[in-house]
């Protein structure tokens, strides 16, 4: 149960600075703002299930930012300063240490998302909306997992670098690539191929699949396929929601597993 001590200590330390609180407020404000605006701008029927399709695009931008900001310094700042050595001098294994960090940071993001979603559901349902419990719970869980994916990507950056600065660059590189320019690359490619007469309107399915591997795209496909009744997923089987769910799982555990195994085998000083 060593990870509990690590997680508890880290959560208390990480949530203290004002900068962390600002970062955590970001997804909460986004969810609440969306929940406030959705009944005004959304089309009937107003339900918490259809709310997922309204808010998921916003979350696909904001949650990654929160995740990498919160995750990127989880391990490397202690490694760089040397306080990591105090923790690992105690009967804590490196696995306990990283697990504690992950639970602490993912827990902070998840907690904020959960609270905001519950309040947001209230805003959607009152006065004219309808609560669809099962889909909404599924959507909240998916959003929490999406937050965990990006927090884990931040922590993976933290595990694979030796200085806080480099971890920041790697984590933000991922955010920049996947969240800010990914769609533009896809659009540019589509435009170019279309102009060259190689494709007709949209990218070939296998290429779409490759571009669809990005965590935000996967998140939106899972949401559309499972939880939002107003949206649907079409195309060949590998563009479907079940494959998306599997890819989602890979993102959740893959990067962390790979970078942790390297961290576990390295000399710390």
């Amino acid at each position: 149960m060593n990870w509990r001590v690590i997680a508890r200590t880290d959560a208390a330390l990480a949530s203290a600075p004002r900068s962390t609180r600002l970062v955590l407020v970001l997804p909460a404000v986004t969810i609440l703002a969306a929940a406030y605006l959705y009944p005004v701008f959304g089309s009937d029927p107003i339900t918490t299930a259809r709310f997922s399709g309204f808010v998921d695009g916003w979350l696909a931008t904001v949650v990654p930012l929160t995740g990498v900001l919160l995750g990127h310094d989880a391990v490397v700042s202690e490694r760089e300063s040397g306080s990591l050595l105090l923790s690992l001098s105690l009967p804590h294994g490196r696995g306990d240490f990283v697990l504690g960090k992950v639970l602490s940071r993912v827990g902070l993001v998840s907690g904020v998302v959960l609270v905001a979603m519950v309040l947001g559901a209230g805003l959607v349902v009152y006065p004219f909306g309808r609560l669809e419990v099962v889909q909404f719970c599924g959507f909240v869980a998916t959003t929490v997992a999406f937050g965990a994916i990006w927090t884990n990507l931040g922590i993976a950056a933290s595990l694979s670098t030796a200085t806080k600065q480099r971890a920041f660059v790697v984590a933000f590189g991922l955010f920049f690539l996947f969240v800010l320019v990914w769609d533009a690359i896809a659009d540019g490619l589509q435009y170019g191929l279309d102009r060259a007469g190689l494709v007709d309107g949209s990218l070939p399915d296998p290429v779409q699949f490759v571009f669809g591997l990005e965590p935000g795209a996967v998140f939106q496909r899972v949401t559309a396929g499972f939880f939002d009744p107003s949206a649907s997923v079409d195309g060949p089987w590998y563009l479907g929601e079940w494959v998306a769910l599997a890819v989602f799982g890979l993102w959740l555990f893959g990067p962390l597993t790979v970078t942790y195994s390297r961290f576990a085998g390295s000399d710390l000083s």
């Binding site: 330390l13 040397g82 105690l90 009967p91």
Partner: peptide, 19 residues
Amino acid sequence: VSARERVGVLPDGYSVFDR
């Protein structure tokens, strides 16, 4: 982990926790 259970350590190059 169990090797360190009965050990008290003052390591080289440590730093205290910031806050």
